[in-house]
Design a protein around this nucleic acid. Structure first.
Length: 874
RNA sequence: GCGGAAGUGGUGGAACGGCAGACACGCAAGUCUUAGGAACUUGUGCCCGAAAGGGCGUGGGGGUUCGAGUCCCCCCUUCCGCACCA
């Protein structure tokens, strides 16, 4: 399909993307233009990664919004001489396939593979430069066997373990969820939005908390601030002290039990007037006084029954019951009562607190509720403020509340030998004193929990262990991997894990003793797949190891990752953890997976809601592509607004992009404008590359520059600006600048200027600049241009990015804005580089300026780099 | 409540502390009578004015500055994340 030249046609062809685009896509594929040779060291590497899609069956416009600008980056980098690696794959395990299986009886593998087929076609229609040779599909045994391999390594290293825990369970998906996967104040499943409930189950975990501190460092990575903040908050490191209280003896128990609490405020220890345990705390049983048993049992039962929503709601009144037992405060030996209350969570800290109502809002509320003593032990140094605070704590005044400040200007009061110390000093001193007596130590607590990976689902990576009657939990030896999923399991309409009913899978023998054993039926969360898939792209067929270490060292960390911020505390956090764990196991070298991250925004439905089939607000890209062509859709998505912003979908304005490409077509293939009405004589540009307003009527040239040179100068100026826009992912302004240049070429079209070398050079630059964003039309016009000049064909995408000429970028004359006292009064045309004295002379000649000055002489004249003049008068 | 991001024409959005509204959409008038996403020209922030011109304008209020959409302080609104985390 050699490119046709205009000469072959009696009339000038119209731009027809439906003819142009498939033709070039086929050609690129034939040439293998985007197959990356990972061993090629002649060029610098650039690993560009876009989050791989879930094969739901159809691509929607959001996928285009995510992927086509990333493709433009790939092409832009390639033109800069990088060896670009831009792979794609499929996140192929997961619930929708299994739900489809339950509904229709079709095997999840079949369903998934059929969807992948369709999505491959759709992804190809983008005209993106994905290297399909590196494709990874996570539901293939070749991939998931390595999940099992990693699991065994983690198990060995103590980074994977099984434990009983109160976990979040989604009743609809019939599956447990990791803490990160429960969202919002109403505690719903991240996938289906159903409120979760708590269940006590034995589950598999990855020890993410082992790397909590390193995960807080972000060393050597450039990530958006919001994501780093979210991760930091999620990890929730908090420094303080663990304090040991001892229970006091009474008539039914001897006392002496240790009650450990975590506090960030050891300086308030003298203000502890009671203790609170989580209702599930293991010591509750033992400490409860027989007289209190009924009440305590009732409370614990209620707490369990309550949904997470009820229990966690902040505006709910505090509830709790006393155990009828007491503990000694380690600093003063005072006996204080022990309560249970559901505002204390078993899963955080030690599941028990010392309550200091004067200096903690929650304890304050609780103390008020149950008329427990409130004792102030911290006060502002300033006497007047101290009085105010004291009244506030006593609740005398408008409203009572705790005083929680721990500033340097706050001092300890009524605190024995510590009285008078500032709050920060007190924290150190009290901790130290406790440590000396063996009654406490400084401690750090995290909000982060270990990553719960077990899923009670059949369509996922089998967890490679068996349960042996004799040997208990036995891992499958490495050389017996993979544990394969059956091809014939039966899905029951009522749901549940089909593996549990599959005898051949279930019944096995113990690898250790050879006796009968039962296989683990839980599978791994799909975020395990996405925690390492980018390494697999480097060597998808490697059989003796998951990751090619040599290629990992050469290509990692990923240079640029693009994807949505919704994964901030899930995928992006798990991936960082995985990387650190693998680095410590010697499997990879780098400790961070993604050097730079960019979060593009999200395209919402026209209704402003998230696009989903159930809402019926999904925009199908195929329809747009067949109507307008891929290039128009690509550019439209880039032009919509800043890439990190997203927004509701609206096709309004896509016609403007189509018209733009049509103009690009015409200024290239038909510079002389055969159509009537085109081009009405060349009207030059002003110094900033804008068309002059029509009010000035005449032609304007840039200083002594001819119209031809002015045009060329505008093209170079555009090149400089567009280069910087691509680098900063500012695609919307990039497109706008290409439009400006095209509009300028339209002005020149049909005039003598259009016959000039400068015009042709401006068109050449335009095509090169357009190539990353609208690859098909750029390639087509490029090939026509080459044919016209009798040059041999070479893809525009193999061309080098052009360089601009600074002398051409610089304007020769400028319309200088003149302000009087900061208000714009006139503009005067001056040559660039005119001495300030000369400028002032010209400016003062202006009638408008003189009128604004009203006969006064400027006291000061401010020159802003030859770009603006401000006359200041008193 | 805490943390983050953001508030600019009818709309999407531009603007190193220096001409607010680039570039588009939409709308209006016009040219050409037009094979089919028509194309092209012109206008389009608001108010006064026939025009020239002037005034006002970036959520609100202060401030810094010759000059503020941009920097600082206070307030309001929207979106996102966390949410009794001791």
């Amino acid at each position: 399909m050699p490119a046709t030249t205009p000469a072959d046609h009696p009339r000038v062809e119209r731009y027809d993307p439906t003819e142009v685009e498939p033709r070039w896509q086929q050609k690129w594929e034939e040439l293998g233009l985007y197959r990356t040779d990972l061993r090629d060291e002649s060029k610098p590497r650039y690993y560009l990664l876009t989050m791989y899609p879930y094969p739901s069956g159809d691509l929607h416009i959001g996928h285009w919004y995510i992927k086509t600008p990333t493709d433009a980056i790939a092409r832009f980098r390639r033109m800069h001489g990088y060896n670009v690696f831009f792979p794609i794959g499929f996140d192929a395990f997961g619930l929708p396939a299994e739900n489809a299986a339950i509904k229709s009886g079709i095997h999840p593998r079949k369903w998934t593979m059929r969807n992948i087929e369709n999505m491959r076609r759709q992804l190809r229609s983008m005209g993106a430069t994905f290297d399909w040779n590196a494709e990874v599909v996570t539901c293939e045994p070749d991939f998931y066997r390595w999940n099992q391999w990693f699991f065994l390594k983690f198990l060995q290293a103590g980074l994977a373990y099984k434990a009983m825990a109160a976990v979040d369970w989604c009743p609809k998906d019939q599956v447990v969820l990791a803490r990160e996967q429960v969202e919002g104040a109403d505690r719903v499943c991240w996938r289906c939005g159903t409120p979760v409930i708590k269940r006590d189950l034995e589950q598999w975990f990855f020890r993410t908390t082992a790397y909590a501190d390193e995960l807080l460092t972000y060393e050597g990575i450039e990530w958006p601030e919001p994501v780093r903040v979210m991760q930091t908050n999620w990890i929730g490191r908090s420094e303080g002290a663990e304090v040991v209280f001892r229970t006091a003896p009474d008539e039914h128990q001897p006392g002496g039990d240790e009650l450990r609490v975590f506090t960030t405020r050891p300086d308030t220890l003298f203000g502890a007037t009671f203790m609170v345990l989580a209702p599930e705390h293991p010591l509750v049983e033992k400490l409860t006084h027989p007289d209190r048993r009924d009440e305590v049992e009732r409370y614990r039962f209620e707490a369990r029954r309550k949904t997470e929503i009820d229990r966690l709601s902040t505006d709910r009144e505090k509830t709790g019951v006393p155990l009828g037992a007491e503990a000694y405060n380690p600093v003063n030996g005072e006996r204080i009562p022990i309560w249970i209350a559901d505002y204390v969570l078993l899963g955080y800290g030690t599941g028990a607190i010392m309550a200091v109502p004067a200096h903690d809002e929650r304890d304050y509320e609780f103390a008020r509720q149950f008329r427990l003593p409130i004792r102030q032990v911290i006060a502002p140094r300033d006497a007047e403020r101290a009085e105010e605070v004291a009244r506030r704590i006593r609740g005398e005044g408008v409203e009572g509340s705790a005083y929680v400040s721990k500033a340097e200007s706050d001092v300890m009061v009524d605190s024995g030998e510590f009285t008078g110390l500032s709050s920060p000093e007190g924290i150190r001193a009290v901790t130290h004193a406790l440590e000396a007596k063996g009654q406490g130590r400084s401690a750090v607590t995290y909000r982060l929990r270990d990553y719960l990976i077990s899923r009670q689902r059949a369509w996922g990576t089998p967890i490679p262990v068996v349960y042996c009657e004799r040997d208990g939990i036995v891992p499958i030896p490495e050389d017996q991997l993979p544990v394969l999923l059956p091809d014939d399991y039966e899905f029951r309409p009522q749901g549940g894990n089909a593996l549990e009913h599959h005898r051949p899978f279930l019944d096995t023998t113990c690898p250790r003793c050879g006796g009968p054993a039962r296989r683990e039926t839980d599978t791994m969360d799909t975020f395990v797949d996405s925690s390492w898939y980018w390494w697999r792209y480097l060597s998808p067929d490697k059989e003796d190891a998951p990751i090619d270490r040599e290629l990992e060292e050469r290509w990692c960390p990923v240079d640029q990752y693009t994807g949505g911020a919704e994964h901030a505390v899930m995928h992006l956090l798990y991936s960082r953890w995985f990387c650190k764990a693998l680095a410590d196991l010697g499997i990879v070298k780098e400790r961070e997976p993604f050097r730079r991250l960019f979060n593009q925004g999200q395209i919402l439905g026209a209704d402003g809601e998230r696009m989903s089939k159930s809402r019926g607000n999904v925009q199908d890209p195929d329809e747009l592509v067949s109507r307008y062509g891929a290039d128009t859709v690509r550019l439209f998505l880039m032009f919509m607004g800043p890439w990190d912003q997203g927004g509701p979908w609206s096709p309004t304005g896509i016609g403007g992009i189509a018209r733009f490409l049509d103009r690009v077509w015409r200024v290239t293939v038909d510079p002389h404008g055969r159509e009537a009405g085109d081009g009405d004589g060349f009207r030059a540009v002003d110094a900033v590359g804008k068309l002059p307003g029509d009010d000035d009527g005449g032609t304007l040239v840039d200083g002594a520059r001819s119209p031809e040179r002015t045009l060329l100068s505008a093209a170079h100026r555009t090149l400089k600006a567009v280069t910087s826009d691509y680098e900063g992912f500012r695609f919307n302004t990039m497109v706008a600048k290409l439009m400006e240049l095209t509009n300028l070429l339209m002005r020149a079209r049909g005039t003598a200027v259009a016959a000039s070398d400068e015009y042709r050079e401006a068109v050449r630059l335009l095509l090169l600049m357009l190539a990353p964003a609208a690859p098909h039309i750029a390639e087509e016009l490029w090939s026509r241009r080459l044919a016209e000049r009798g040059e041999e064909w070479r893809s525009i995408h193999s061309e080098s990015w052009p360089a601009w000429d600074e002398s051409l970028v610089a304007a020769e004359s400028i319309e200088l804005p003149v302000q009087v006292n900061g208000k714009l009064r006139d503009r005067v045309l001056v040559p660039v580089g005119l001495p300030q004295a000369e400028i002032e002379r010209i400016v003062l000649e202006s009638a408008k300026v003189r009128a604004a000055l009203g006969g006064r002489t400027p006291d000061r004249v401010i020159h802003v780099g030859g770009r603006l003049v401000n006359l200041v008068v008193r």
